[in-house]
Amino acid sequence: MRLYMQIPAADGSAPRYYHLHLQEDLLEGWNLVREWGHQGAGGRVIKDHYPDHDQAMEALMRLRDEQIRRGYRIVFIQGQEQP
């Protein structure tokens, strides 16, 4: 699953973005990759490992809800079913 959120530009600054996506790793686990920053600039990236898809998806949904409460709007969603 891939989720891209954005806060519109304010006070002449670039919009802020928050990007979440799940990746299956080679060791039978899942990584939740979080990237955020200002549009057009280098962002910050953190990868969190989870032993299964369900736990990774729960973490993604928690982070999504947290960012929506902070004012981010969902711009793009690409779904992926569990293999």
Rank of each mutant, 00 (worst) to 15 (best):
D52T: 04
G37W: 02
G12P: 00
G29E: 12
G79K: 09
R70E: 12
R73Y: 05
I77L: 13
A59P: 00
L60M: 15
G79Q: 09
L32R: 03
E35F: 07
L26G: 15
A41Y: 09
I46E: 13
R69W: 00
A41M: 14
R62T: 12
L32G: 04
Y4A: 03
I7N: 02
M1D: 02
M1I: 06
L20P: 02
V33N: 01
G79I: 05
E66W: 06
A41W: 12
M5C: 09
H19A: 02
P51W: 06
R69L: 10
E66V: 07
D11P: 00
D48Q: 13
D25C: 10
Y18Q: 00
Y4N: 00
V75H: 01
E28Q: 15
R64Y: 08
P51Y: 08
I68K: 12
A14L: 08
G37F: 04
Y4H: 09
L20V: 02
Y18S: 01
P8L: 07
G40Y: 07
K47L: 11
L22A: 02
I74T: 15
H19C: 04
E58W: 08
D11Q: 13
W36S: 13
G71P: 01
R73G: 11
R70M: 13
P83E: 11
L26P: 06
I46D: 13
E81R: 08
L27G: 11
R64W: 03
R62L: 12
H53R: 09
Q55V: 09
R64C: 12
Q55H: 13
Q78N: 13
M5T: 02
M1C: 08
R62P: 06
R64P: 03
E35N: 08
R62A: 12
G29A: 11
M1E: 03
R44Q: 10
G79S: 11
P15S: 09
E28S: 14
Q78A: 13
P83A: 09
A10N: 02
V33I: 15
A10S: 10
P8F: 02
L20Y: 00
L3G: 02
Q82E: 13
L27H: 09
W36M: 04
H38T: 10
Q80P: 00
Q39D: 14
H38P: 05
R73H: 09
R69H: 02
G40R: 10
